[in-house]
Amino acid sequence: MPHVATTGTFSWRRFLVTFAISMTVLAIMLFVMASQGIALAAPLAGIGGVVLEFDRLEGQGFQLLPVTNDTDRAAGVPMARAKIERLVITDLHMYKDLKVGGKTVRVSITASPVEISGLVQDMTYQQAGSIAFTQQTVDEQRGANPLSMTAPGVVIEDARIIAHYLFQNKAKLPGMKLEVKVID
């Protein structure tokens, strides 16, 4: 009796269902990491700054301190550390440009209004249309933090910030949109 060779079958339906479930699980994991402050504190640290642009930030419990931190190009770079206890950001656009295979890929997140508690941000650049403080205090003293600026309230409008470290205790990103695209 001759042996008949058969070929295997491929089910596109099973493949697509499995692929859709995998991508959904991945998207949920990314969203949870981003909303808990993990996504930017760990993987993006050390590979250049992340750019934050927004129309308006209203914060309570503001503190600004000088620090040194590492970037992708150098260790011990002077930076400004902003700490804000609670804040709301209108029209946040946060993005990171990465070199991948000779091309520049932009990973971009947009959301509004973003609510954050326990923000810590180290930055090397900030440009704003306006910044307003309530009851601002600047304190110069000897010790680990020779200069600090505090204010119970801060309002920043039309800003662009390059941050090398971001952390939030808790973040709500309603209407969050994640986009990955090649920009050159």
Rank of each mutant, 00 (worst) to 15 (best):
L87R: 09
G49L: 02
A80T: 05
Y95I: 03
V77N: 01
Y95F: 15
L52R: 12
R86Y: 09
P43S: 05
R86M: 04
S112V: 04
I89V: 15
I47L: 14
M79S: 02
L65T: 06
Q60F: 10
F54D: 02
V107M: 15
K103P: 00
I109H: 07
V77S: 00
T68M: 02
T110H: 06
G61S: 08
R56S: 09
L52N: 05
G59K: 11
D72Q: 10
G46T: 10
H93M: 11
L44W: 13
E53D: 10
Y95R: 06
G101T: 05
V67C: 02
L52P: 00
G102Y: 08
P78R: 10
G46P: 08
V105R: 09
A75R: 14
K83D: 02
F62N: 02
L57G: 01
I109R: 09
V67E: 01
A45S: 14
Q60A: 11
G48P: 07
L52A: 10
M94V: 09
I89S: 11
V114R: 09
L87V: 04
I89C: 14
T68W: 00
R86T: 11
L52G: 01
L92V: 08
L65H: 02
D91H: 14
I47K: 13
S112D: 10
R81K: 11
T104N: 08
G76C: 01
D91N: 15
F54E: 02
G59V: 04
V51G: 00
I89P: 12
Q63Y: 02
E53K: 15
G101F: 08
P78N: 06
K103N: 11
K96W: 13
R73H: 11
D70L: 01
T68F: 07
T90G: 04
L65M: 07
P66G: 03
V50A: 11
I47H: 13
G59F: 14
I109C: 00
S112N: 07
M79I: 09
G76Y: 08
L65N: 04
D70R: 03
I84Y: 12
G102T: 02
A74Q: 15
K99Q: 12
G102M: 03
R106C: 00
P66A: 01
I89A: 13
K99T: 14
G76K: 08
A45Q: 13
V67R: 13
Q63S: 12
A82G: 05
A82C: 03
S112W: 09
E58V: 09
G61F: 14
L44D: 03
A42L: 14
G49N: 11
T110V: 06
M94I: 08
F62I: 01
M94N: 06
E58T: 04
P78C: 08
D55Q: 14
T68Y: 08
A82E: 05
V77R: 10
T68P: 00
T104H: 09
M94C: 07
L98E: 10
S108T: 05
G48N: 06
V107D: 12
V114E: 06
F54C: 01
K99F: 06
R106H: 10
M94L: 15
V114F: 11
L44E: 04
V77T: 14
A42V: 11
A111R: 02
M79R: 08
G101Y: 05
V67I: 15
M79C: 02
